Simulated scan of single mutants.
Amino acid sequence: MTAPSLETVKIRGCWSLTRLPVASGRDKQVVECDCEKEWWDRLEWDDGSQASRYKPIHSRYYKKTILRGSVLR
């Protein structure tokens, strides 16, 4: 999948998403990606140059331990 006009992506709590679309817009265009740090670190890239097309933005309220499950019993 390609996304030529993509400017900003906001992803929260989507742990099964492992790849981002190819950002094939204008030259030097960087897509801002507002996401969790753990999720960003687990992303899979087809080639290393694609990762440079995205700029990760992590919340300043980021906490390392994030509950990933249900507390209901």
Rank of each mutant, 00 (worst) to 15 (best):
G25S: 09
S49T: 12
E36M: 11
Y54S: 00
Q50D: 09
R42F: 00
D41R: 08
V30Q: 11
D27M: 13
D27G: 05
D41Q: 12
W45H: 06
K37T: 08
W40C: 05
C33A: 13
S24C: 13
A51Y: 00
P21D: 13
C35E: 09
S24L: 08
K55F: 12
K55H: 10
D46M: 05
P21R: 07
R53G: 02
P21F: 09
V31T: 04
Y54H: 05
D41A: 10
R26T: 14
V30W: 03
L43I: 01
V31Y: 10
V30T: 10
S52K: 10
W40H: 07
W40F: 08
L20Q: 02
D47F: 00
T18I: 12
T18V: 14
K55W: 09
A51C: 12
R42M: 05
S52I: 02
K55I: 04
Y54E: 05
D46A: 08
S52E: 13
P21H: 14
W45L: 02
D27Y: 08
Q50A: 11
E36V: 03
V22I: 11
D27H: 13
W45M: 05
E32N: 09
K28G: 10
A51R: 14
C33I: 15
L43G: 00
K28R: 14
G48S: 06
A23N: 10
Y54L: 04
Q50P: 00
S49V: 03
L43N: 01
R53A: 09
K37W: 03
R42L: 07
E44T: 06
S49R: 09
Q29N: 10
E38T: 13
D47A: 02
G25Y: 05
E32W: 10
C35K: 10
